[in-house]
Amino acid sequence: SKGEELFTGVVPILVELDGDVNGHKFSVSGEGEGDATYGKLTLKFICTTGKLPVPWPTLVTTLSYGVQCFSRYPDHMKQHDFFKSAMPEGYVQERTIFFKDDGNYKTRAEVKFEGDTLVNRIELKGIDFKEDGNILGHKLEYNYNSHNVYIMADKQKNGIKVNFKIRHNIEDGSVQLADHYQQNTPIGDGPVLLPDNHYLSTQSALSKDPNEKRDHMVLLEFVTAAGITHGMDELYK
């Protein structure tokens, strides 16, 4: 796709999030870079409003799984890469995230190029959380598991539907599940690639910047598309 050509090198990323969870309002600002050749993201996020009212790991899918245009699609799968094909005009990404036995996040993001920078601007609203639950009670460990993110075409809306389940580790050794339902639709009216069913395999590492006084998260992530085999004719070339 034409959009794919915008991702040949390292691309700067800007992320802006405004959130409200159970009436606790907050903002997060992030910057870093993405390299789609390797499916690599390096980002640093800062809570610009003081202390973040929710655990950082609960925002990873909104912040970095928010820029799935940096996923590495192998050559034989490039015609299934909706995310890059929607660029530079970008796409709207909407999600509902259900935390098992707790509340939910609803998010709406616009992901697009502004100049040479890929920008992810998000509004997040969280409701029905227990004040002493795993999320508002800050009981999650500061780490992140690997996940597969399942993608299918949504021809009606000229976009994709995505769903997956995140496993958050809790300090007591148990797990907090979070079910994600995602819809992506193009902002522009140019042609986009509608994929066959496949998935993104994601690995994320969270860390801290020892010199950063503000509440923050440093993230390194690798994302690769998989799940579609080479056609038989490919094998015999």
Score class of each variant (00 low, 15 high):
85 S>F: 07
47 C>S: 06
166 I>L: 09
155 K>I: 04
15 V>I: 13
67 V>L: 08
115 G>D: 08
227 G>V: 09
181 Y>H: 12
166 I>S: 12
148 N>S: 05
132 D>V: 06
92 V>A: 06
45 F>L: 10
175 V>A: 10
43 L>Q: 01
94 E>K: 08
16 E>V: 09
177 L>H: 11
163 N>S: 08
135 I>N: 03
13 I>T: 02
197 N>D: 15
179 D>Y: 09
188 G>D: 09
136 L>M: 15
3 G>S: 13
166 I>V: 12
234 E>D: 04
144 Y>N: 10
106 K>G: 04
7 F>V: 03
34 G>S: 01
108 R>H: 05
129 F>C: 04
157 K>R: 14
102 D>E: 14
13 I>V: 06
116 D>E: 11
104 N>C: 15
169 N>K: 11
232 M>I: 15
127 I>A: 15
212 E>G: 01
168 H>Y: 06
17 L>P: 00
201 S>R: 11
88 P>S: 04
6 L>P: 07
99 F>C: 01
166 I>N: 04
70 F>Y: 03
80 H>P: 01
187 I>S: 06
208 K>Q: 06
43 L>R: 00
153 A>V: 04
163 N>I: 08
198 H>R: 01
8 T>I: 10
101 D>G: 10
179 D>H: 09
38 Y>N: 15
142 Y>C: 07
23 G>A: 02
158 N>K: 13
227 G>E: 07
42 T>A: 12
167 R>G: 15
20 D>G: 01
45 F>I: 03
198 H>P: 01
20 D>V: 10
185 T>S: 09
137 G>R: 11
130 K>R: 12
104 N>D: 04
201 S>N: 12
61 T>A: 14
117 T>I: 05
178 A>P: 01
9 G>W: 02
169 N>T: 14
121 R>S: 05
100 K>R: 10
203 Q>H: 15
141 E>A: 10
180 H>Q: 09
169 N>D: 13
198 H>L: 02
151 I>F: 02
101 D>A: 06
44 K>R: 06
174 S>G: 14
29 S>A: 13
15 V>A: 02
232 M>R: 15
176 Q>L: 14
76 H>Q: 05
